[in-house]
Computed example of a mutant assay.
Amino acid sequence: MKIGIGCGADPAKIQKSLEKIKDKAEYVLFLKDVLDEPLDWIHYDISEEPEIRLVDALFNGEIDAAVRGTLPSNKTMKALKKRAGTNKLRRVAILQTADNKKFLLAPVGVDEGWSVDEKIEFIREAKPLADKIGLNNSVAVLSGGRFGDIGRHKIVDKTISDAERISELTGSDNCEILIEDAVLNHGIIIAPDGISGNLIFRTLCLLGGGDAHGAPVLNIGKIFVDTSRAGIDYSNAVLLAISLVKK
């Protein structure tokens, strides 16, 4: 099994992450420049545009799964959209709270999940992922306020009405703005939009002592696990990619 990992910056951080799991798979590091201290058990794919090369290798079958690693998001996601033939990517983040409660969160891309239909698609595709990784597949839909907040602001009102409609159409639970309650009994959390989802992810993982296990892209027919360049370790995301290949 070959797993490709993008390396746009801080190659030592990527290699240190792989050291922990070196026997789990073969690894190919996609990067722009030759390293001063390469490791003999890692393959290195050097190119002028490693973002495009990583995506091409995935779709050409040269690797079984790809992890973005530290490659820049904008260029990598653009290449992925083009090769997959889609205008929208649906990423679902696998998160873990400081007290080890795991759940799926979507949308987490700032340009994702801005319509009722998009969020329904996230629910449809997140449930099989939850089943694959052994999480509760019940869904909590969040909004920008409680029912009692209706009338305070038109944007808040829209998030509340959207959450109610999504819950009715999918049989999910409308948990209003109460994410702290939603994670207790639901394995899938649907944020009001991509901005709030991204903020939830960053607050939990970068400020709140939580952890991220990567964000698989669910609508491209290939295994691609997105990651944040702000992360300090990528072994969880790589292990997720390995697990998804096996399943």
Results as ranks from 00 to 15, higher is better:
Asn236Ile: 01
Ser235Lys: 06
Asp211His: 15
Ala25Arg: 02
Asp33Leu: 07
Ala140Trp: 05
Leu80Ser: 03
Ile177Ser: 09
Cys7Leu: 08
Ser73Pro: 01
Lys2Arg: 15
Asp233Glu: 15
Ile63Ser: 05
Ser228His: 10
Arg152Ala: 11
Asp211Pro: 00
Lys101Asp: 08
Glu37Asn: 15
Ile195Phe: 13
Thr76Trp: 05
Lys119Phe: 06
Ala93Lys: 01
Ala25Thr: 08
Thr159Pro: 00
Ile120Tyr: 09
Arg202Glu: 13
Asn137Gly: 01
Ile52Asn: 12
Asp211Ala: 14
Leu95Cys: 06
Asn198Gly: 11
Ala65Tyr: 02
Pro128Cys: 12
Gly109Asn: 09
Asn87Trp: 09
Asp33Ala: 12
Asp173Ile: 07
Phe122Asp: 11
Val34Asp: 14
Asn174Cys: 13
Ile232Cys: 12
Ile5Gly: 04
Met77Asn: 13
Lys82Ser: 14
Leu218Ile: 10
Arg83Ala: 10
Ile195Ala: 11
Leu129Lys: 08
Ile42Met: 13
Cys175Ser: 10
Met77Trp: 10
Thr76Gly: 01
Ala163Lys: 02
Ser172Trp: 06
Asp56Glu: 14
Leu39Gln: 15
Val28Cys: 10
Leu105Trp: 06
Asp23Pro: 00
Leu135Ser: 08
Leu39Pro: 00
Ile188Glu: 04
Leu35Met: 09
Ile150Ala: 14
Ala191Leu: 06
Ile94His: 10
Asp10His: 11
Leu178Tyr: 13
Asn60Asp: 13
Ile177Gly: 00
Leu31Asp: 04
Leu204Glu: 02
Ser47Glu: 05
Gly231Glu: 11
Ala230Ile: 01
Ser243Tyr: 14
Ser235Asp: 15
Lys78Ala: 11
Val67Lys: 01
Leu80Ile: 04
Arg229Ala: 13
Glu180Lys: 12
Val28Ile: 15
Gly194Glu: 10
Asp117Leu: 14
Glu112Cys: 02
Val238Ile: 10
Ile52Asp: 12
Ser143Gln: 07
Lys78Asn: 07
Ile166Ser: 01
Arg124Trp: 04
Asp117Arg: 15
Leu89Pro: 00
Lys2Asn: 15
Ala163Thr: 02
Thr76Tyr: 07
Asp33Val: 13
Ile188Ser: 01
Pro192Ala: 06
Asp149Thr: 03
Asp40Gly: 05
Lys32Met: 14
Phe103Arg: 07
